[in-house]
Design a protein around this nucleic acid. Structure first.
Length: 486
RNA sequence: GGCGGCAUCGCCAAGUGGACUAAGGCAACGGUUUGCAAAACCGUCAUCCUGGGUUCGAAUCCCAGUGCCGCCUCCA
């Protein structure tokens, strides 16, 4: 069993080996915090979260860095465009720092809800201005950059390998009609390392070239190398960042260090909504807070993982509904398992159990090893679920050890690695629902009496009415249980 | 204009040369169970966009066509 990743740099699957044994340096492009996170963020960060979880499960010590971009960058390398953070801050009459704080918190709130593990470090761009200036000075000193009217540009032609990630050649880029000619640049594809701040620009820092702010590719290079060293094992991000963002990161980093910047480039595909690209500038994005109104965060997570990270994901209510039901089925198995564990009895351990668990685990790991095929991996959990349900319904007493081992299996693969199985389910929690519980006990007892007396009309009436307010009754041989359905 | 990706059951989605007469989920249908339900289980349900080609063998490779999408401007 060997872990393989599809590497954008080599356009193929490669066996993964870390630079330093047992340790992995990983960086993922984080959000620009000027608005609430949307489902596109969810896909990206859930995908990389599972990669981190899996690497840790395999025993690696992973340092996982995800930046917080709290400097609004201009929309292109020229002087055109607007700064999203400044624009929002002005609109909402708040300090940029205030705005950024609001949305940084919002971001973590939603990522926590999705059950993503927090990055090891979440460095802020504004907290690393000196490092960024230092990198620019380094590049100037080595002749890869030039100062022009208070701004500093990277001279792309000096870096021969520019284009190796995105497959673009410099000659082709010249014709790129969409880049406006900026007279400050020697070449249209040169990109800004440092921008001169115009008089109205609030976010500005002192630099050797006057007051300004960093170019939008710079923070990732400066911060990743600060915390992870000159060569990263894994750099992740969205597909749309391959060019120009990641291409420029490579150029400025490798020009500065003379060493390979990233060994494995991983890119997740995009989210579409009803078949259409979802984008901030298109204004059709669905925020996670909206999505969570209708769907459980774990459903959103499960939905995302049901598709491979490099495949596009189309968000639709039908698909989410289907995912919700599927996840519910998986959860039911585990709920039943845990209910049984509350009152364990002496019983048998089926002779083939461990062989089966072992086979399922091999299938699961095999799927994960093939470039994190979560869809396939989830399939193996459903396969196991079928067998476990059969076992639980068999009417035989099952040993506590057996139940515990199956539970631990789900907890590891479905919980620790995929993060789609919670440690406890809501119905098993106590607290403010105590009164409801008492009322339900009374109702169920009453209904049981009715059923004993074969008063079907009344007992069905209770069940129907409860169903209408979102409480499902389930008459099992051992008694009636209830659960909330929404 | 340049670069790249995708097209698999009613829907979602794995599979990228032989164990595929194609995983898994949702829906549907038949059955078991149930007072009736629910849940669960068993069973049924695809030859892989079209046309060529390579190969002993292709969903999987190549060519052409059709359709959809992404990047080339901030975006996960």
């Amino acid at each position: 069993m060997t872990l393989k990743f599809y590497n954008t740099l080599t356009k193929g699957k490669e066996i993964f080996t870390p630079l330093y044994e047992g340790r992995i340096n990983m960086y993922v492009c984080g959000p620009t915090v000027y608005d609430h996170p949307h489902i596109g963020h969810a896909k990206s960060y859930v995908s990389f979260d599972v990669i981190v979880r899996y690497l840790r499960y395999l025993g690696y010590n992973v340092r996982y860095i995800q930046n917080i971009t709290d400097v609004g960058h201009l929309t292109d390398n020229a002087d055109e465009g607007e700064d999203k953070i400044l624009k929002r801050a002005q609109r909402d009459h708040v300090e940029p720092a205030e705005l950024v704080e609001i949305y940084t918190r919002s971001y973590f709130e939603d990522m926590d809800a999705l059950n993503n593990v927090r990055p090891t470090i979440s460095p802020r761009a504004t907290a690393h201005i000196p490092e960024q200036i230092e990198l620019v000075e380094d590049l100037l000193g080595k002749g890869y950059a030039y100062v022009s009217n208070g701004s500093v540009y990277f001279e792309v032609q000096k870096f021969k390998e520019y284009g190796k990630l995105s497959g673009r050649r410099q000659e082709e880029l010249e014709a790129g009609a969409r880049v406006e000619i900026n007279p400050e640049k020697r070449h249209p594809s040169d990109f800004a390392l440092w921008k001169r701040a115009e008089p109205g620009h609030i976010m500005r820092w002192k630099s050797p070239w006057g007051e300004g702010f960093p170019g939008w590719h710079l923070e990732c290079s400066a911060m990743s190398m600060k915390y992870l060293g000159p060569t990263l094992d894994i750099h992740g991000g969205g597909l749309e960042n391959i060019f120009p963002h990641h291409e420029c990161e490579i150029a400025q980093s490798e020009a500065a260090t003379g060493k390979p910047f990233v060994r494995y480039w991983l890119h997740n595909n995009m989210v579409t909504v009803n078949g259409q690209k979802m984008g901030k500038s298109l204004g059709n994005f669905i925020t996670l807070k909206d999505a969570f109104q209708k769907y459980r965060p774990l459903t959103v997570r499960f939905f995302i993982l049901n598709t491979h990270y490099r495949s596009p994901l189309d968000f639709s209510n039908e698909a989410l509904d289907a995912a919700d039901k599927g996840l519910e089925r998986l959860h039911n198995t585990i709920k039943h398992l845990r209910e049984r564990l509350l009152f364990p009895k002496d019983g048998t351990t089926p002779s083939t159990l461990y062989e089966k668990l072992d086979n399922h685990k091999k299938a699961f790991m095999g799927a994960m090893d093939e470039d994190i095929n979560t869809s396939d991996a989830i399939g193996t959990l459903f396969d196991l679920s079928k067998e476990v349900n059969t076992l639980l319904n068999s009417g035989e007493e099952i040993s506590k050890k057996c139940l515990e081992d199956i539970n631990a299996f789900y907890q590891q693969l479905g919980g620790d690695i995929l993060g789609i199985i919670p440690k406890t389910f809501e119905s098993q929690q106590i607290g403010e629902t105590d009164v409801l519980k008492d009322v339900m006990d009374i109702l169920i007892d009453t209904r049981s009496e009715l059923r004993k007396a074969k008063q079907w009309q009344l007992s069905d009436f209770i069940r129907t009415k409860l169903s209408e307010i979102g409480i499902a009754l389930d008459d099992k041989p051992t008694g009636t249980v209830w659960k909330k359905t929404r």
